[in-house]
Simulated scan of single mutants.
Amino acid sequence: MNILKKAAGKILYGIAKLLSVVLDVFIKVVEAIVTVLGNVTKGLIAFIGMGGCLLLFIFSGPLGLLLLMNPLVLFAILFFVIFPLLGTKFVSYLKYIKYIVTEFLFDRARYLIDGISYQFESFSEYKDKYRRMEEERKRREQQQRWNEQQRVWEERFRQWSEYQRQNSGYSDYEWYRQNAGNSNQNMYQDPTIEFKKKYEESCDLLGVKYDADKYEIKLAYRKKAKEYHPDLNKSPDATVMFQKINNAYEFLSDSNIERYRRMS
């Protein structure tokens, strides 16, 4: 009986492994197609932008009507415009399916081969784990972006402070004359104006006052994020707006709130 169980487990493990490889290849192919089509679409948009008036004239006339009635033309438009948008979600869905199905099969195979208990009893538990993993991945990526953003700002303010310290005895004209032709001059520009502008634009995007504290900012972010979440808001610009809201919230960190208050 144990021999049969182990044999069945090995067969199930082989099926899971094969399915994992097949899905990996399929996902990579779909990702490549989405990337290529996305680049082609961007190129077409740029081309249309350069000759927009001419194309508008052509498509508003009888020739444009004939072209739009052609099934091949309509298919091409839908393919190059809609597929890159839906393709990204399709890839995410494929990764989701691959994980829960293969992990389920691998768990059952290990149980049959070695008697190791299942990690989870049902598909829904694997789904929950995948969602938690994705949330954690996004959180780590957000933290990495925030760390890099803070590193850049800290370096800019450090360079500006160092420049002021070293050149405190020079007038702006004397410093410019002595450093004419220096390609690093732009490194020593006061970042204060740009920082304040970005801070205030982020506050405007979330709809909070410039002197809002972190709790007000967090509450406003949650409301805006819920309003523009792509799963809830089906408007064409929802995804772009959702990303802008996230970027604004990332910028309005505790340290940046404190820095802005010191500047005010």
Rank of each mutant, 00 (worst) to 15 (best):
Lys5Thr: 02
Lys5Ser: 14
Ala7His: 05
Ile11Glu: 00
Leu12Asp: 11
Lys17Met: 14
Lys17Thr: 11
Leu18Asp: 04
Leu19Asn: 06
Ser20Lys: 07
Val22Ser: 02
Asp24Lys: 05
Ala32Cys: 05
Gly38Gln: 00
Ile45His: 03
Gly49Met: 05
Gly51Gln: 13
Leu56Glu: 10
Leu56Asn: 04
Phe57Thr: 03
Gly61Glu: 12
Leu63Cys: 08
Gly64Asp: 01
Leu65Val: 12
Asn70Lys: 02
Asn70Ile: 03
Leu72Asn: 05
Leu74Gln: 11
Ile77Phe: 08
Phe83Leu: 15
Gly87Val: 00
Lys89Ala: 11
Val91Lys: 07
Ser92Leu: 10
Leu94Val: 11
Lys95Pro: 00
Tyr96Met: 12
Lys98Asp: 02
Tyr99Thr: 00
Val101His: 09
Phe104Trp: 12
Asp107Leu: 12
Asp107Pro: 11
Tyr111Asn: 12
Leu112Asn: 02
Leu112Thr: 04
Ile113Asp: 08
Gly115Glu: 07
Tyr118Phe: 14
Asp128Cys: 03
Tyr130Asp: 05
Tyr130Cys: 04
Met133Val: 03
Arg137Val: 03
Arg140Lys: 15
Glu141Phe: 08
Gln143Phe: 07
Arg145Pro: 01
Arg145Leu: 05
Trp146Cys: 04
Glu148Ser: 06
Gln149Lys: 08
Arg156Asn: 09
Phe157Ala: 03
Phe157Glu: 13
Gln159Tyr: 12
Trp160Cys: 05
Tyr163Arg: 08
Gln164Met: 14
Gln164Lys: 15
Gln166Cys: 02
Gly169Thr: 04
Gly169Arg: 04
Tyr173Arg: 14
Glu174Ala: 10
Glu174Met: 09
Trp175Arg: 14
Tyr176Lys: 15
Arg177Thr: 02
Gln178Leu: 13
Gln178Thr: 09
Gln178Trp: 05
Gly181Cys: 08
Asn184Ser: 14
Asn184Cys: 11
Met187Phe: 14
Ile193Gln: 15
Phe195Cys: 03
Lys198Glu: 03
Glu200Gln: 09
Glu201Thr: 01
Ser202Arg: 06
Cys203Glu: 01
Gly207Val: 04
Tyr210Asn: 06
Ala212Thr: 01
Lys214Asn: 12
Leu219Cys: 02
Leu219Thr: 07
Lys223Thr: 02
Lys224Ile: 01
Lys224Arg: 15
Glu227Phe: 14
Tyr228Trp: 15
His229Pro: 08
Pro230Gln: 14
Ile245Thr: 06
Ile245Gly: 05
Asn246Ile: 04
Asn246Lys: 13
Asn247Thr: 13
Asn247His: 13
Ala248Gly: 02
Glu250Asp: 12
Glu250Leu: 09
Glu250Ala: 13
Leu252Phe: 00
Leu252Ala: 02
Asn256Lys: 09
Ile257Asp: 05
Ile257Cys: 12
Glu258Trp: 06
Arg259Phe: 05
Arg259Ser: 07
Tyr260Ser: 06
Arg261Leu: 14
Arg262Cys: 00
Ser264Arg: 13
Ser264His: 02
